[in-house]
């Protein structure tokens, strides 16, 4: 169990490393170039992983819309690489997480046509309170 906890935590660390490096590249080559390099290098790396694993799934029944993730990903890396050097690693991570979880709650609400659980609502309140803290200090 501890192994998986460390693994998942290290994954968060790797995300930070990846976004920091892309942010560095964006300061020299621009945010869109950083997104291109991130995707090309990641594609090459995953191609090796797929070749080693020798798995090739049946893709004939996959809905085309399921491939739209790549479009969002390309935009995400560009925007994130732009904001990362400007906000710093911690604030950028915190704000991205806030946008991520708040939009996830809204999307779940719409898709399930139901209000979030009380625990989730408490979470939303905490996230919003955190985001308002710097505004109060001014």
């Amino acid at each position: 169990m501890l192994f998986f906890v460390v693994l998942a935590l290290s994954n968060g660390l790797l995300i930070g490393v990846s976004r920091t490096i892309n942010g560095r590249l964006s300061t020299r080559r621009g945010a869109f170039a950083a997104s291109v390099w991130n995707h090309v290098v990641g594609l090459a790396f995953l191609s090796v992983v797929l070749l080693v694993m020798r798995v090739w799934p049946d893709v004939t029944r996959v809905p085309v819309a399921a491939y739209a993730g790549g479009v969002f990903g390309a935009l995400f890396v560009a925007v994130n690489s732009y904001v990362f050097p400007r906000l710093g690693a911690m604030s950028a991570a915190v704000l991205v997480i806030a946008g991520q979880v708040l939009s996830a709650v809204v999307i779940d609400c719409v898709r399930q046509a139901a209000l979030p659980s009380p625990l989730r609502l408490a979470g939303v309140a905490l996230v919003l309170a955190g985001l308002c803290l710097p505004l109060l200090r001014k």
Partner: peptide, 29 residues
Amino acid sequence: LTLMTLTNAVLAQHTGAVFASWAAHGIGA
């Protein structure tokens, strides 16, 4: 990121996590 996760999850259900990410990286590139 949420929209990406949502759509990639559909792809991963059909094909597996690594292939889904590989395809998303290709289209993203």
